[in-house]
């Protein structure tokens, strides 16, 4: 009996004993953290400088270093930036929302067809779509411009929407095909037996069960269209100038007005930041499930 008690005490002690890290491990940890802090400072310092500069007056920008907090906080820079960026932001918003919605919708339909229905050349279509995602946009810029001109959509918001819808579709298809492969085939067969056709199954079963996938791909698409410059520069004229181009013009037209430029940059970055902060958990879980399916 006493032996048992002694043994159980030993067991308890064994459980609570902490392994003391060796001295060189501690040093290694300190070095790791120092490197990480250095990287943090390296990445965050420009952002910090941007935020600080955006709240300064133009004269203060000239006299202080960018990372110093403003002596007098002002929204002057934001007001000036909004004057220049107001209309382009609306254009960007329109292009982003419709472009992303269009490409996600088309990509979703393609992905549904490719992942859930067998037809001749199924794989050929898929390989062609994957290849399309690697296509450098610069390579097709001139014929694209000619096509858009021919369609009378140059300097037109809907021209940009069309281009983003078409060029975003392959990537959306590739991403969504992975998610749709997760929908069990038995569900599709069951829905068929329950009297549903191909489109009803898509609408009532596949889409409602892959909401997170749709959100993930939509956010991904929104981010890339919002930040896009090449199509915007070539296809958007004066009237349908998106915010990325307008911001670039701020640098050119208002020499040395850094507070306005920084405020403009932050205004442009804000929607994407907000999207990532609120949708972060969906994005991570969505990307993970896609990854598992792909493997």
């Amino acid at each position: 009996m006493q032996n048992d008690i002694a043994r159980s005490k030993e067991a308890q002690q064994a459980q609570t004993v902490r392994v003391k890290p060796r001295w060189h491990m501690t040093v290694l940890h300190i070095v790791y953290y120092l490197i990480m802090i250095a990287f943090l400072v390296f990445y965050m310092l420009p952002f910090w400088g941007t935020v600080m500069t955006s709240f300064k007056t133009n004269s203060e920008v000239m006299t202080t270093t960018p990372i110093m907090p403003p002596r007098q906080w002002t929204l002057e820079g934001y007001a000036s930036a909004m004057e220049e960026l107001g209309q382009p932001l609306m254009t960007s918003l329109l292009v982003t929302l419709f472009g992303a919605a269009g490409s996600v919708f088309l990509g979703s339909i393609c992905a549904y067809g490719l992942s859930k229905w067998k037809f001749r050349f199924n794989n050929v279509f898929f390989i062609a779509l994957v290849a399309a995602t690697y296509l450098p946009f610069q390579a097709i810029l001139i014929p694209l411009l000619q096509t858009i001109n021919a369609l009378d959509l140059y300097d037109n918001v809907w021209g940009l929407v069309l281009v983003h819808t078409v060029f975003g579709m392959p990537m959306c298809t590739v991403m969504m095909r992975g998610y749709y492969a997760d929908v069990p085939d038995a569900l599709i067969r069951q829905a068929m037996i329950d009297g549903n056709g191909v489109w009803q199954i898509y609408r009532k079963i596949v889409v409602p069960n892959t909401k997170i996938a749709t959100i993930t791909v939509f956010v991904f698409q929104c981010t890339s269209i919002w930040n896009e410059m090449l199509f915007a520069l070539v296809l958007g004229g004066y009237d349908s100038k998106p915010a990325t181009i307008a911001l670039n013009e701020l640098a050119g037209t208002m020499a040395a007005e850094f507070n306005v430029q920084m405020a403009g940059s932050l205004i442009l970055a804000l929607p994407v930041l907000v999207l990532y902060i609120f949708m972060g958990k969906y994005l991570i879980s969505g990307q993970m499930s896609g990854a598992v399916t792909a493997s």
Partner: peptide, 14 residues
């Protein structure tokens, strides 16, 4: 299948 008026139960229930 949707026009055959059949009902089916799968092993995985679906």
């Amino acid at each position: 299948p949707q026009e055959r008026n059949i009902a089916m139960v799968f092993q995985e229930y679906a």
